[in-house]
């Protein structure tokens, strides 16, 4: 694929689960009460006192093979510029097939418009010439990195080459572009 291919990398080693990314997104994108485009997911496993905790800052995975796009009957869910997955609220009928088709629970119905909404990788900021998303900008431990996978010099490419990473539910066959560093 020519042109940029945007992706996000989250470092689970440095993330402390402070939820600043959630607040930053909410302030930036004015999501309705009770809804957010990103959230903190933490899993504690083991027996006290030997416990381990994995914290993930989660959002839309902007999948390469996005099931929400192929299932959408009106073309509202579509692959936007830079390989990002976007929703056109003007075209959305609120049939919710995309919510059922998403294995990550990344989508919700905005009660104000009746249209489906989710993380856009802060597309309005990129269009305005910025190079960061709001969650990335606000992260106090700099655990969130956004960038172009097709650029071998980008921070995301460098991290994915040098660190061990995983994606969520790879067996669902969606080829996510949201990575977690172990």
């Amino acid at each position: 694929m020519k042109g940029p291919r945007y992706a996000m990398v989250v470092d689970t080693r440095t993330c402390v689960g402070c939820a600043a990314c959630v607040i930053g997104c909410k302030a930036e994108n004015d999501t309705p009460d009770g809804y957010s485009r990103d959230w903190i997911h933490s899993l504690v496993a083991g027996e006290f006192p030997r416990l381990r905790m994995t914290i993930e800052s989660r959002r839309c995975n902007h999948c390469e093979k996005a099931p929400c796009v192929s299932v959408c009957p009106t073309g509202a869910s579509h692959v936007g510029p830079g390989g990002t997955v976007q929703v056109d609220p003007e075209k959305c009928s609120g049939c919710k097939a995309c919510i059922a088709a998403c294995p990550y629970g990344a989508r919700y119905v905005d009660p104000r418009s009746g249209a489906v909404d989710k993380c856009t990788f802060c597309w309005h900021r990129l269009e305005a010439g910025k190079t960061t998303t709001s969650c990335q900008e606000i992260c106090p431990t700099q655990s969130i990195v956004f960038g172009d996978l097709n650029d071998p010099e980008s921070e995301v490419s460098r991290l994915l080459k040098t660190r061990k990473w995983y994606v969520l539910q790879p067996d669902a066959g969606t080829a996510p572009k949201h990575f977690y560093l172990e």
Binding site: A19, G34, V44, K96, I99, G105
Partner: peptide
Amino acid sequence: MTELESGRNHLLIDPSLHVWG
């Protein structure tokens, strides 16, 4: 012991999906 905590609490999705009734 495994304990899960999710900050997501969306109507129609949590605790399990129920978009269609």
